[in-house]
Amino acid sequence: MSKENKIDTVFNRLRTENKTAFIPFISIGDPDIETSLEIAKTLIKNGADMIELGFPFSDPMADGKVIQRSYERALKNKVSMEDAFSFVKKLKAYRDIPVILFTYYNPVFILGERFAKGAQSAGIDGILVVDLPPEESGELTKYIQGKNIYQIYLLAPTTGNERIKQVLSHAKGFVYYVSVTGVTGVRKSLPETIKSKVKEIKEISSIPVGVGFGISSKEQAKDIGKCADAVIIGSKIIQFIEDNINDKPTIIQRIAEFSSGIKSNL
């Protein structure tokens, strides 16, 4: 099987166009499954090159308040992994852009092999497990082997040069650089170190670098886009849901405007 992973396809295309990928993040099931599917389609229609879908977890230790509350809303809708798979199928039927499932390890671990099979048949292209460093990835690597699913790894401002090399030796698709020392959430200003760190990563590997955590404005996206291959935005988009929780048309409208605004700056 030599089918190319769609994540590679998109990065290769954007590279020739000299463009940066826009990867929005939303949680599956927030505010409800149907609306979150609408939101995902809206993002795709308005410039998303790939999409990151968060699987709601009871104990999101790496997430700030906005995503915590998003997961809490989604958990009330009792979203199962099966629901997540069928969500991805529907989204892929709408448009087949790369889908990255963002999750904590426990919901994946308890399903084991069944997770990998389900993810494959749903068409998931990448999986990002926020609490699964390469050292503990053995089980998951075994499960997804031969299934054309990439495990996306993270690098952080605290990651030293030796460790960057070590993580990159496992990386496929792209590597996710966490721009701030902290949890997810909107930041007014981003650290100056992002550019030098991205440069450091790029000197070691030719793998695309996506930057996320804290990015919320066109200006920030444009600036990060100068050095990164992808800009990842989550909390800012989810804030539109929270602020207009009883007004779905407004949620869709605000997210559409925001999304196309970001994309036009990349």
Partner: peptide
């Protein structure tokens, strides 16, 4: 060496924490 007690234990944490641990 990896902090495992048989199949248990280990280090299931986000990358930001790994260097500190």
């Amino acid at each position: 060496k990896k902090g495992h007690f048989g199949e248990y234990g280990g280090r299931y944490i986000s990358e930001t924490l790994m260097p500190a641990v």
